[in-house]
Write a protein that binds this DNA or RNA. Sequence first.
DNA 1: TTGTATGCGTTATCAA
DNA 2: TTGATAACGCATACAA
Lengths: 348, 348
Amino acid sequence: MSQRPRRATILEVASAAGVSKTSVSRYYSGERDRLSADMSRRIIAAAERLGYQPNPMARGLKGGPSGLIGMLVADIRNPFSVAVMHGVEQACREQGLSLMVCNTDNDPEQERKHLALLSSYRIEGLVVNAAGRYSEALSQLADGGTPVVLLDRALAGVDADEVGLDNAAAVDMALDHLIGQGYRRLLFITEPPAQASSRQARLDRFQARCAEHRLTGETLSTDLGDDDALAAALDRLTSPERDDQASDAMGPAAILCGNGQVTLAMTRCCHRRGISLGPLGLIGIDELDWCDLVDPGITTLAQPTDDIGQAALNALRNRPASQAGRAPRRLLFAPHLIARGSTQLSPG
Amino acid sequence: MSQRPRRATILEVASAAGVSKTSVSRYYSGERDRLSADMSRRIIAAAERLGYQPNPMARGLKGGPSGLIGMLVADIRNPFSVAVMHGVEQACREQGLSLMVCNTDNDPEQERKHLALLSSYRIEGLVVNAAGRYSEALSQLADGGTPVVLLDRALAGVDADEVGLDNAAAVDMALDHLIGQGYRRLLFITEPPAQASSRQARLDRFQARCAEHRLTGETLSTDLGDDDALAAALDRLTSPERDDQASDAMGPAAILCGNGQVTLAMTRCCHRRGISLGPLGLIGIDELDWCDLVDPGITTLAQPTDDIGQAALNALRNRPASQAGRAPRRLLFAPHLIARGSTQLSPG
DNA sequence: TTGTATGCGTTATCAA
DNA sequence: TTGATAACGCATACAA
């Protein structure tokens, strides 16, 4: 409709209200109490009429607060990431902040670009859940004073707090549950650990605890791309034809899936091969929509994603002014066991 | 590490390189060919050393291209939205654009805020998948010349193209499939149609086609909040105790779920009540991770989400300069039927 | 081919 | 309590 739909500027509002632009600026900078009632009235009237809204770019140029939080997500299609993002978002809303999300799709180049963008938009904080490599750009941002929180991964050389799952506790819970249910031969499956510290942490803990308990604890690292690797591991676990000893004597077998993606891939693999769960144990880290729906129900360790998201934003905001030399904080959350049929040896 | 981690400015690069800032600006504005080799070399060296990167805010202030595409998502936890977002993102990457995503969580206030933000960041286009109400802010943005594409919903009064599923074709496919499989009593379940035009379109088509075929075609609109509504509808459909006529004579019953969320809720409802699918038909619009995993497999109509995402970005970019009076384009995509056990009357 | 000067919309500093 | 003016970092018309 309108011929000149360009957004009104502070100057236009000022002249329309018959005041100086400084006053208008003050009004929008939260110094309303320092303006006379009459002035406030005229400003708001003019602004209303012109549909004025301060331009964040110009604002940002001057260095004022942007009210912007950024979030970098490695894989937007991972339900866990989305769930946490939702938590961050809720927290932002409560504090009147806006959240901008960039998906890097595990592409370092994208990560760099998005980082540069967010940084130049003067975000007041950044939640990062990106590829686990060291990032020069990220480090620069953190050194530049922008609070950074690492989500679900640690990154050496970057001055940032960490928020995520208590991986050791999670693995312990999984193992205790499996052992308590009578499983004795364990297999841990993970996506490549090099890409995320949490994967490595879970893997390490798994191996340590298995050794402690003197249990057979094998591990498989795969990118889930080829079903064959999963199938092979499955065969090894389920077929009792082993050289060393009679595996039956060693008791039933169970799989611990390192995250939701693995749980999906593994469940699918079992489903295809007609392997029924329960007799073969299956427990996964991360709760998913469908875990109560597929056959005996998939036992999971649910992460408190909302809490994690909230904590991430809090860590961003409550950070002590002087960071120098301070050891990064680590906010770890315990998971919640949801026991279902897939870890029940005999159908209840 | 660095004491003065503030990002380097064009001026600093210029003086470090011993040239004027204009030349540096030119270098970064794609006019490198108009600079002498020597100058280019010095500029890039200085920029490299200082880690210089142009400030998009300052750039944006002047009105240059921002290389930014915005996307508004109503519910980030909806896998369909995420899948489309991924498509948009891929397309952006190919064109060297950055995508910023804001989740409105179906909150009009959030939508308004995010819209204002994106708009002020001079986005070159906006993909909107938000609540289906008319939005003054959105309309203003579109009138202001920013290309807008409506995703999966129409919005009267907004000058924008539409991209999404061919809802009529989808419902037709579903109905043809169900009827072909022998189902005769049909129930369509949708989330509140008022919130999204696509829901209404699917509902309308369902009713029209059922009338055409002289089939019992009931509908249920629910927000999925209470399981009871679903359960009641289920009972009505499955229990043959009806007043009008012997329902058995009318043949087997099937449910068409209006989207993925409905499919999930309905599958869960059936699962809880021990109703086996197949004998009760179930088909859902939207393919989901777990559809091949739960009991007989859930038949779905998969949307070509990547194509839709691509098309959305294309619509944004290839838009004729003068929009005035032009009827909005409508880019509709046909779904792809994935037949599974849930629409097979007798187990194959 | 290179440089100078000006303006983009806002906030901050200072003066009134 | 208010206003004039100088930055902020960059692009661009214009001059050299």
